[in-house]
Amino acid sequence: MTLAGHVADYEVTAEVVKDGTFACLRARRPARLGGSGEVTVWALGPAARAPWPMARSRAGAFAAVRSPGLPPWLEVGMAEHDERPVIFVSAEVTVTATLASPPPELGMPGRLRALAAAARGAHALHEHGQLHAGICPQSVGLCPDGTAVLGPPPLADGRRLLAQVGYPPLAYIDPQLLRGSAGRWSDIWALGATAHQVVTGFPPFQGLDDIPVVQALARQLASPAPALAPMPTAISELVSRCLALGPAARPPTAAEVADGLEQAASQWQGPGEAVSGRG
């Protein structure tokens, strides 16, 4: 879908995904940056929700980490988008879809490999002391060349400002993070929740979008481990481990999650495969 408009001096050419507080957009590369072609701009907002110094600091720390699965970041700034102030982050990559709405031609193995790429990006961040805290289907960008990247971190850092309603959706926030225990296990939980969505079509905690935020948050805070939907055996054990209540029961690193996702992709046999779930 094409979209007229700008984010700062980025001329928006297409809207990849958008909801109330998160937008992934393609835009023309501003001439002042040199070169030409399209880049990707993520707009997070409203910007007034989080201190600008926090967003600036987070973006700067992320940009210093270069790894497969992470886009080459261009800029972070503040601008108006859709008549509201947003923090925008641009990257030298062309994202045409996300795992929130993957193209039909991208089969399950391709989707799992895309999530594996994001997991590798998350692992690189962890090894550099950074928590993403925003992994969800819409944060995994799919590129035309078959690669995938992990989008920008949310404005909240999982510290005192634990999260912000919207990006990521509550269903992808580790209950342990909400209880004040954030760590790389929080991103690993979010990878498991995203894998659950990719494979089954819905997140592990269902119905949170249908109830008031207060109730949804209370439910998340009180949640034991979620009851998982039946899934092919190639992926069910990995998802189950990622979504374990106790951080120590989860895979120790996002790199291990990436390995598991790639293995599941290579072993994927299609819808007829045996399924298992955790009731």
């Binding site: 720390a61 210093a64 261009l74 950074q130």
Partner: peptide, 19 residues
């Protein structure tokens, strides 16, 4: 319109890996 910070030369943050 709001300005921007160039991230292309962002220096690495000397942080230890997450536990």
């Amino acid at each position: 319109e709001g300005g921007a910070i160039d991230l292309r030369g962002a220096p690495p943050a000397p942080l230890a890996p997450l536990p």
